[in-house]
Design a protein around this nucleic acid. Structure first.
Lengths: 217, 217
DNA sequence: CAAAAAATTTAGGCGCGTCTAAATTTAATA
DNA sequence: TATTAAATTTAGACGCGCCTAAATTTTTTG
C-alpha cells in the first residue's frame, strides 16, 4: 500500500497530465505540492521504483497504467466525500476541498463502497467533475466552455474548471449554480464578456475570466 | 496543533487512566500503541514539553487539564464517526473501530459540528459509550455489570466493556444487543454463568467472561 | 537489606519526507 | 554555436516517530 504522500503525488500528477497533456514537469509538481523541486525529485525516484510512473531524468514524468489506476482511486474517494459533505452535511461547494483532501486518504474498500451506496452512486461531484468508477477509470465527458458558446444559444451549467473558494463564491453571488440554464444574449467585442439570461428572468454580464472557467452543454 | 501520533497517545493515556486510575505506566502505553517502551519515553518527553501531561521520570504519567480536553476531542470525533458508520452506512458494531481510528484525526471543527447535527447529536456510540461534549468533558454514566445483577432482576443492556470484534460477534450470535431487556433467572454457583430470559421469550446461559463485560442499568 | 529482577530512560541509529546549497543537464539566446 | 539562463538532480542535513542495545532507577525478594 502507498503512503498518504505518495497518493497525493499520484493524484496531482494525474491532474496536471490531463490539464496540459504530455509529460509533467518537476517544477509544476513542486508548485502543486507546495514543496521544493529537490523534494519532488526524491519522490519521483521512489514512485518510479514502485512502477507507478514512467520517469526519465530531466524529461518529466507520466503515470503508468497502475499509477493511473491508483490516482483514480484517490480521486474517486475525494469526490465521493465531497458529495457527502455537500449533500449530507450541508457544506457549500466552496468549503469542501480541504476536508475531502484528508478524507480521501482513508483506505477501506468497504467504506468507499458503502459511502457510494449511501450517496446513491453519484456520477458527479459538487463541482460537476465526474467520479471515477470503482475499477479505476475516468468517465470521459465532453463539455464546452461558456466562452465558446455563440449568441442565441441556451445551455446548462455543468461544471467549473477553477475550484478556488473565491471563484465558487463569486458564482454563488452571481446566481450561477450547477444545473442552471443560461441563454447567451450578447458577447462584447471589447472584452469578450458575455450577457446571459437566467431562467429566473434575471440577466447579468459575465466576465471572460468567468466564462472561460464555466463548463456547459 | 498536535500530530496524528500525539493525538493517539493522548487518547490512549485517557483510556488507561480511567480503566485503572492513578498514573499510567510506560509499558502499558507501549503495549497499547504497539511500540516499544523506549519509543514511549521519547513521546512522553515531547507531550510533557507541550504541557499535555504531568510526567515525572520513572513515575508514570497523567494528563493535564489541557491534555484531557484534547483527548476528549479525539474521543468525541471517534465516537461520532462510529455512529455514522453504523447508523448511516450500515456497518456492524464489530467493524467500525479501525475505520473510526482513522477518521478521528480529521481536524475540522466545522466537520465535527455538522456531523453531530447530521446524526441528531447522539449521546452514545454504537457500543454504548458516552460521547464527550463539544466543550471536552466526558458525561459520567454509572452502569452495573451484568455479573453484579441478582436473580429475579430485569435490566437493559446499555454497553460493553470489551470492544473486540470477536466479543461483539459473540453477542450478535447470542442475540444480546444494546437496548435488549434481559431477566436474570439463575446464577450458577459453580462457574458464575448466568441464565437470562430475553424479551423474545428465548433464554440462554451467559458465561461469566461475557457477563463481566456487559453493562446494564 | 542487599542482590536480582523488572521497569524505564538514554544513546545512537534508521526511514520518511522535507530542506538548502551545489552540481549537472537542458533550453534559450547573443 | 558558444555562452548564459533555467530546470532538474544530487549531496548532505533535519525533525518525526520508531528501533535496539546499554545504562539507570525502582521494585521485588531471598
Amino acid at each position: 500500500m502507498h503512503s498518504f504522500t505518495e497518493e497525493n503525488y499520484l493524484k496531482i500528477i494525474y491532474a496536471l497530465s490531463t490539464r496540459q497533456n504530455g509529460e509533467v514537469t518537476t517544477n509544476a509538481l513542486a508548485e502543486m505540492t507546495a514543496t521544493k523541486a529537490a523534494s519532488v525529485s526524491d519522490m519521483l525516484r521512489k514512485l518510479a521504483d514502485k512502477q507507478l510512473i514512467h520517469y526519465k531524468k530531466y524529461q518529466g514524468v507520466r503515470l503508468t497504467a497502475e499509477g493511473e489506476r491508483q490516482a483514480l482511486r484517490v480521486i474517486r474517494r475525494h469526490r465521493l466525500w465531497e458529495v457527502f459533505l455537500v449533500q449530507k452535511l450541508g457544506f457549500g461547494w466552496d468549503q469542501v476541498h480541504d476536508i475531502a483532501e484528508e478524507l480521501e486518504h482513508i483506505r477501506s474498500e468497504e467504506l468507499v463502497s458503502r459511502l457510494d451506496t449511501f450517496l446513491g452512486s453519484p456520477q458527479f461531484d459538487p463541482h460537476g467533475d465526474p467520479i471515477p468508477t470503482p475499477a479505476g477509470t475516468m468517465p470521459q465527458i465532453e463539455y464546452r466552455k461558456l466562452s465558446d458558446v455563440s449568441v442565441g444559444e441556451e445551455v446548462t451549467i455543468m461544471g467549473v474548471l477553477e475550484h478556488s473558494p473565491e471563484f465558487l463564491q463569486h458564482l454563488d453571488r452571481s446566481g450561477l449554480t450547477l444545473g442552471c440554464a443560461v441563454k447567451v444574449s450578447e458577447i462584447s467585442s471589447f472584452d469578450k464578456s458575455v450577457q446571459v439570461h437566467l431562467s429566473s428572468e434575471k440577466s447579468l454580464f459575465v466576465s471572460c475570466e468567468v466564462t472561460r472557467n464555466l463548463l456547459v452543454n
